[in-house]
Amino acid sequence: MEQQRAERVWGLIYAHARADGLPISIDTICHACADAFGATGVTIALTGDLAVYEPVSVTGPAAHRLADLQITLGEGPALAALTDRRTVLVPDLGSPEAAVRWPVLAPAAVEAGIRSVHVFPLLLGAIACGVLEISHADTRLLTPDEIGDAMIFADAALLIQTHQLVNPDAGPTDLQLGQVERWAEVHQATGMVAAQIDADLTTAFVRLRAHAYVAGRSLREVAQDVVARTLRMEPWTPNGAPNGAPNGESED
């Protein structure tokens, strides 16, 4: 039964790769998963020392927005799944329970067009390496059968991300990430802001997130502005007031 399930799910992934005429990548798994579940969005993210939640493949604009919100706010179902190393099923982000658990994120996600989300950790032994998130615009709870399939997609995502690393010739930069170049801009902007405000990267990242939150903009948009040099941050002066612009930031 489980063997048949694995064969069926891998069959879907292979069919997707064949249709695209490309070898199986993390993006193939993301797209095949979105198709199989009729999902509004699917995100595959990894975790590491430098980023707790790093999207490596995202499909659907709403999923981009949900990932952005979770990074900016530092809360959400995916972060809970990583911390607890277990599956987090949220059938209704508009429910009172969701509002208690994620008071800022839950209403923002609903506003972004996501009403339910199912998160499956990518587990290697006892360690959570990342997550697979499946989002829908309507309230729903995946059936046990669908959950079984989702776990195979999660295994496949982990396998694809790790298999080239197990090759003894692979270097650290051989990690093949998906079409998520916009997330790279967040890290580039963090490095730029660290130089602008003469602070460490953690502080710079907090400044970026705070700016996005206060301005009501997405972290990626803010990062793009920093990289394009239409937005720069100023160091805080000793008396607490920023140099130059009244809010410590200036638009060119």
Partner: peptide, 15 residues
């Protein structure tokens, strides 16, 4: 290896 690879990517972007 997976953590190291991911961290190397992020570190490079920040640098």
């Amino acid at each position: 290896q997976l953590h190291f690879a991911l961290n190397s990517r992020i570190l490079l972007e920040q640098a």
